[in-house]
C-alpha cells in the first residue's frame, strides 16, 4: 500500500497527467448534459406518438422508439457517447415521424380540397333545371 502510494507520488509528473488525459476514453465520464438530452429524446418520442403518426408514419415512429430504447441501454452500459448520439438521433427521428405524418395528412387534404373544388365547378357548370 505504502509502495503503491509512493509510485503514485513519483508518477505525478506532467507526462503522466497528459497521458491519462489523452488515453481516457470519451465515455469514461458521463457528459453533463446527457441527462438533459435523454429527457428531451424521451419527451420527443412520447410527443410524436400520436394517432396521426401511428397511421401515417408508423415506420418512422418505430425507428425513433427503437433508438430511444438503444439510447437508454447505452446509458446504462455507461457507453455515454453512444447514448448521447442515440438520444439525439431518437429526438430527430421523432421529429421526422411527426413531420412526415403531417406531410401525408396535408397532401391528402390538398387532394381532397382539389376534388371538392372540381366537384363544385362541375355542380356550378351543370345546366340549371328551373
Amino acid at each position: 500500500m505504502k509502495r503503491h502510494l509512493s509510485i503514485l507520488g513519483r508518477l505525478s509528473s506532467p507526462a503522466l497527467v497528459m497521458t491519462l488525459l489523452i488515453t481516457a476514453p470519451a465515455w469514461a465520464v458521463a457528459p453533463l448534459d446527457l441527462g438533459e438530452k435523454m429527457a428531451v429524446a424521451e419527451a420527443s418520442v412520447k410527443q410524436a406518438n400520436t394517432t396521426s403518426t401511428n397511421e401515417n408514419a408508423p415506420i418512422e415512429l418505430q425507428i425513433a422508439a427503437t433508438k430511444l430504447i438503444s439510447a437508454r441501454r447505452a446509458w446504462s452500459d455507461r457507453d455515454y457517447l453512444r447514448a448521447e448520439h442515440l438520444a439525439e438521433q431518437a429526438q430527430v427521428d421523432a421529429q421526422v415521424a411527426q413531420i412526415h405524418a403531417e406531410s401525408v395528412r396535408s397532401s391528402k387534404a390538398a387532394l381532397e380540397s382539389q376534388d371538392a373544388a372540381r366537384a363544385l365547378v362541375e355542380e356550378i357548370n351543370r345546366p340549371n333545371i328551373r
Binding site: 430527430v92 413531420i99 390538398a110 373544388a117
Partner: peptide, 23 residues
Amino acid sequence: QRVIIAQETASSRASQAITAGAA
C-alpha cells in the same frame, strides 16, 4: 434526417397552400 425534415416540411407547406388556395 434534418434534410428529410426540411423536405417534408416544404412538401407539407406546399400542400397546405394548395388546400388554402382551393378553399
